[in-house]
Amino acid sequence: MSQINKLAYVDNKLGAPSQGQQTTRILFNTITAPGTTSGLIFFKTFQGLTNGQTNLVQNKLDASESMIIKTIMLMQYNTEGTLQTFGGQEQQTLSIIVGNQQVVKNLPIQFNQGGVGQSFDRLHSNAAVGTGGVATFERQTEFPCEIRLLTDIVIPPQVSFEVRVDSNNAVYGTGAVVCALSGYGKIFSAGNTF
């Protein structure tokens, strides 16, 4: 089942509007100065974030908007903006909660990032490529962590969601960590309503 058909199927089951502009959505949320912690929760806090740190104002999509989560991406930057290995290659797991349901449960993320070389899929076969030398904010020496899901997960309209990353005191530094969710989606389209 394609992303288009899956979204239409779930929206129909939930009685959500099927009209809307088809598009590709990428939702992202930033946690600044996360420090050393055992748990990160993305898409929970929006206060104080600018449009360059999140593209939502609350942890749910608007009415008539829905999307598929197909790709999850995690990035970590130091205060200068240099891309770093997410959580320092510590073992970490990721969970996604939509409404009161856990739709991704304790998925390990560290295999799909730099230096490990054991990515889940062939798409990320070069995730382990590192160029050596000193990374700067203008000179990137590794890739962010990204996982392509095999099952399309739907975020329906007006249902809260969050992404949790668990670890044993992983070091996320004093810069920022970013989580992005990407996939096919629908945005509100007034058509000739107004």
């Binding site: 990428i26 790709t71 991406m73 990035m75 891309l83 070069n126 962010p144 392509r148 970013v178 990407s182």
Partner: peptide, 10 residues
């Protein structure tokens, strides 16, 4: 994203 966008790393 400056550091690369989802589904582009292959």
């Amino acid at each position: 994203f400056g550091s690369g966008t989802p589904f582009t790393f292959a």
